[in-house]
């Protein structure tokens, strides 16, 4: 059978449609929420971001499911001494997380609300600019990466980060790790560490550990570069805050209010 112009165009159109549907299904746009990525296939995005529902999170002040999941999969040590503490994600009081939102009439209770905080994976990260060995840099998709092999422990990045998102290993962390998960390397004394937006999980097609661990669906992870993504819809529908955005860092973690 000879292929004429018509059937060629029709076949092309059908193939395009099939591809578009496959892509939409893969991105979860045609499936029920919450969005679960296809297993085993890397998640790719143009600009990753996170939206945290302040109300939903603050309604369960004792819940630490996300923090525990994060620290378990990344072998984050647990030190009780705050001077040695290592944290990838933790809870801060509202007043400390959002100093610019200071409001004398909001009352004690509001100021003390627990807020989940982590590395903001800034659009314009000050930490990466000061690193002398390029052990930390911003990836094309927005993840502010750490290369632990290159970190020399100078701690310039710790000083540069306005959010306190980076911790330094003052002592060997291994003895303080409750149970070592051998699939993710630990760190050593003398290197800095922080949230990596679970880039190792994204590469396996999994959502960040905190997002999957939250029993209340308070965390939404997604591609800010995709106007159809769930995170973009949320940000368009609801007002949101960013931590210290007046500094010009462009945080990519948003707090829905």
């Amino acid at each position: 059978m000879a292929i004429d112009r018509r059937s060629f165009l029709a076949a092309g159109g059908l193939a395009g449609l099939a591809l578009a549907i496959r892509r939409a299904v893969a991105e979860g746009r045609l499936t029920a929420e919450p969005w679960a990525p296809p297993e085993g296939q890397a998640l790719t995005g143009t600009r990753w971001g996170m939206a945290i529902d302040l109300e939903a999170c603050a309604a369960h002040p004792g819940c630490t499911a996300c923090i525990e999941a994060c620290h378990r999969v990344h072998n984050v040590p647990r030190f009780d001494d705050p001077k040695r503490e290592i944290k990838w994600t933790w809870k801060e009081t509202f007043e400390h997380a959002f100093p610019a939102q200071e409001n004398p009439w909001a009352g004690e209770e509001r100021a003390e609300l627990p807020v989940l905080v982590m590395c903001n994976h800034c659009e314009n990260p000050p930490c990466t600019r000061v690193c002398p060995t390029r052990a930390t840099w911003k990836r094309e998709d927005g993840v502010v990466m750490m290369d632990w092999h290159r970190c020399i422990g100078c701690r310039y990045c710790v000083a540069a980060c306005p959010y306190g998102s980076r911790s330094f290993n003052w002592v060997d962390p291994r003895p303080a790790i409750p149970e070592i998960d051998p699939s993710f390397p630990t760190r050593t004394k003398g290197v800095v560490e922080k949230c990596n937006l679970c880039e190792e999980r994204l590469a396996e097609g999994k959502l960040p550990a905190c997002v999957t661990a939250c029993p209340y669906g308070a965390l939404t992870f997604g591609d800010l570069g995709d106007p159809e993504s769930r995170i973009r819809r949320l940000l368009a529908e609801r007002p949101s805050l960013r931590r210290k955005s007046f500094l010009g860092t462009g945080p990519q973690v948003f707090y829905l209010v």
Binding site: W148, I180, D181, P182, S183, P185, T186, R187, T188
Partner: peptide, 10 residues
Amino acid sequence: WDCHSDMGAR
């Protein structure tokens, strides 16, 4: 080995 764990042993 200071950071990378022994998968085989586990």
